[in-house]
Amino acid sequence: MFDFQLINGLAGLLIVTSLLVILSRGPANSARFYALQSFILVLTFLALAKETGSRELYLWSASAFVTKVILVPAIMYRAFSKLDDPRLGSGETMSPAVSVILAAGVVILCFWVVSGVALPAAEAIKPALAVSLAHFFLGLACIVTQRNILKQVFGYCLMENGSHLTLALLAAKAPELVEVGIATDAIFAVAIMAMLGTRIFLTFHSLDARKLTTLKG
């Protein structure tokens, strides 16, 4: 039981770190916080692996450590630290306080939704499940509310982490190759986004999402 508490606790930490990723100024900071968050995620995986005795999850933790804690932050750090749009600032559209309240709202909502789901396998880890869902939506919220396109990359990463956690919680015994595929996708996604973001910056001289509204109608 204790380990499930641990898992749920770690999951709670994820929310905090994701708020940090969202709210921090500058992409480099966000990348650092993201690495931190991914590390917590890996810990969660490990706890989960220990609890369920899943050999696959150990492998997942390893691959997640490589991809999420090292590779992705590195890519982002390298790609984004040069990009800076002073006119835009952090590009947030709402104050940190509101963001926190919003996040809290999302978490509560997700708890409520998850409590309604009858999943025998996930009875013990419902809080973690709720957190993973909330995490996902926090990432989405990051994409939707932030004007800085780099933040949207982070938003995507948060969503990805959230869904990854869900996957681990609900499908702990899924073949490791699957996880490798997902992780690879994530890396490539981040790489492509980073590349596109860079080219957008070079072309538009801005990171403002509002500049990207010429195609419409």
């Binding site: 996902f136 989405l140 994409i143 396109i149 949207q152 995507y156 969503m159 990805e160 869904s163 869900t166 996957l167 997902i182 996604a189 492509i192 986004m193 596109l196 973001g197 080219r199 957008i200 072309t203 538009f204 990207l212 010429t214 195609l215």
Partner: peptide, 23 residues
């Protein structure tokens, strides 16, 4: 400019959307 914008939107919207698919 326009093609980069399109590509960006394409990537973001599709990855966001497809993320739901993962759920």
């Amino acid at each position: 400019k326009s093609s980069l914008e399109a590509a960006w939107k394409y990537v973001i919207i599709c990855t966001v959307g497809v993320a739901f698919g993962l759920y």
